[in-house]
Design a protein around this nucleic acid. Structure first.
Lengths: 173, 173
DNA sequence: CTTCATGCAAAAGATTTGCAAGTTC
DNA sequence: GAACTTGCAAATCTTTTGCATGAAG
């Protein structure tokens, strides 16, 4: 559980974005697909987001940036971004489909409180190592992972002990 | 990675189901809700399923068992089953919303091949222990978890090395 | 220029909700 | 009996598709 570095910069010149775009371009080339303005803008928007986000947020982002983003285009691009390892599906407790950046960030997984919905991010190198071991044992190369722990935070436990029913059953971020 | 015990029985007398029902009843009581036939049947159906399943499968199951199951009723019950810790949301790579039993089964997590969609279940005690440690460190009591590893299986890697584009990009179970 | 990508709008699915009628406590 | 549930159908939301028009290589 070490601290997370933060290399993000405001503009569109984030080196992380550039690298991701390259990677994306490579995937597209392999598939005889084109790196269009729209697709590049989607990568940009995706990497600029923090944490989990619903698909529609990307559509809104594009609109805001002047690109007449179309829902359909975003939906069509998502599987490509995922395959390129730039995005990764993420869900926390029944919410609608969400994604999160999977590239250029340190890994971070989630600990979700079932009582109040609070989400804590964590990183644990030892777990990452064991994951690689599991993958290797099955002949897999590990590319990504998703790991969520569900439980009760201290506050919600105290509340329960006091005989009070917890508030919002589920509404994780 | 030990073997999974299998205590499931065909009929409706599975002791696991009985315990789950009790737990469910307790939750309902707390909330001044009623344990109706429909809700009990949904618990039963949910626990009888193996692995991940789409919501509609539960609806079909009810129909099959003679209960004139209604989609709406199932949808309305799902958050309750989740809160009771009987079901748990599960998604593998962009598929539609799915659930899986979270009660009375040994933990099992998934290793998914991004090339061909193959899914391998795994269990790794060491990881479970570390998870508990992470939760404890943040003051959480761990109730459940979801852990998925994504990568490439041996076959798909060989295929890629041979310069062939992999088949179905994503369609994990 | 040929092929692939985009937008729009329509289609398909998935989930939620209103309400009269049926159940549970 | 009163309060909570259910089913159905209609309303919403989300995601996918068809197709004519606009870019990319």
């Amino acid at each position: 559980m070490r601290l997370r570095r933060n290399t993000a910069r405001p503009g569109g010149t984030d080196p992380r974005h550039a690298t991701a775009l390259e990677r994306f371009a490579r995937l597209l080339a392999e598939k005889d697909l084109r790196l269009t303005k729209a697709r590049a803008a989607i990568v940009e928007a995706a990497l600029s987001r923090n944490g989990h986000f619903p698909i529609d947020d990307l559509v809104q982002d594009l609109r805001r940036r002047g690109i007449r983003g179309s829902k359909a285009t975003v939906y069509r691009a998502l599987p490509l971004l995922t395959e390129a390892g730039i995005l990764q599906p993420a869900v926390a407790q029944g919410d609608a489909r969400r994604y999160e950046a999977a590239f250029g960030r340190d890994h971070h997984d989630h600990l979700v409180c079932r009582g109040c919905g609070k989400v804590v991010e964590f990183e644990y190198e030892a777990i990452e190592i064991l994951q690689r071991e599991v993958a290797a044992r099955h002949g897999f190369t590990l590319e990504a992972h998703q790991h969520q722990l569900f439980g009760r935070c201290e506050a919600c436990r105290a509340q329960a002990d006091a005989g009070v029913a917890p508030r919002r059953p589920l509404s994780a971020n």
